[in-house]
């Protein structure tokens, strides 16, 4: 298992840098992920999407479908790509500290 240090915490991650122990997540970790992808400051919009994602994951064991994310946050897909450089699946989920989606999605 790969490891990286983010916001002073040693984290187990997969080969794409997604956290494997979602319980260790903190808001500082989200900020640190953002920094790595060139987003120096997380705005309210970022947090709205991240919190929704994370809470959805914790309740349902899976990331929400994009359609749902769009509807619940009120952001367009384009807006989501503006907020998260690699898009909702590759950036937002990672920053929210949930594992990468696998299996035909």
């Amino acid at each position: 298992m790969a490891q990286i240090e983010l916001a002073g915490v040693m984290l187990q991650v997969d080969e794409h840098g997604f956290m494997q122990e979602t319980g260790k997540w903190t808001e500082d970790i989200a900020r640190a992920y953002g920094q790595k992808e060139g987003v120096t400051e997380l705005t309210d919009d970022h947090w709205k999407a991240l919190n929704y994602l994370r809470n959805y994951y914790l309740a349902n064991g899976i990331c929400p479908m994009v359609r749902r994310l769009v509807k619940e946050t009120g952001f367009t897909l384009k807006k989501l790509y503006d907020l998260f450089p690699e898009g909702p699946a590759n950036s937002a989920c990672k920053w929210a500290g949930v594992p990468k989606a696998t299996g035909c999605v």
């Binding site: 696998t102 299996g103 035909c104």
Partner: peptide, 25 residues
């Protein structure tokens, strides 16, 4: 993949209740 599918229902990690909820949505 197959292990998760047999255990949870789908390699995506989609549980039965979440599948129904998603379809409703």
């Amino acid at each position: 993949g197959t292990v998760l599918q047999l255990e949870v229902g789908s390699p995506t990690g989609l549980r039965p209740d979440v599948a129904k909820d998603n379809m409703e949505f």
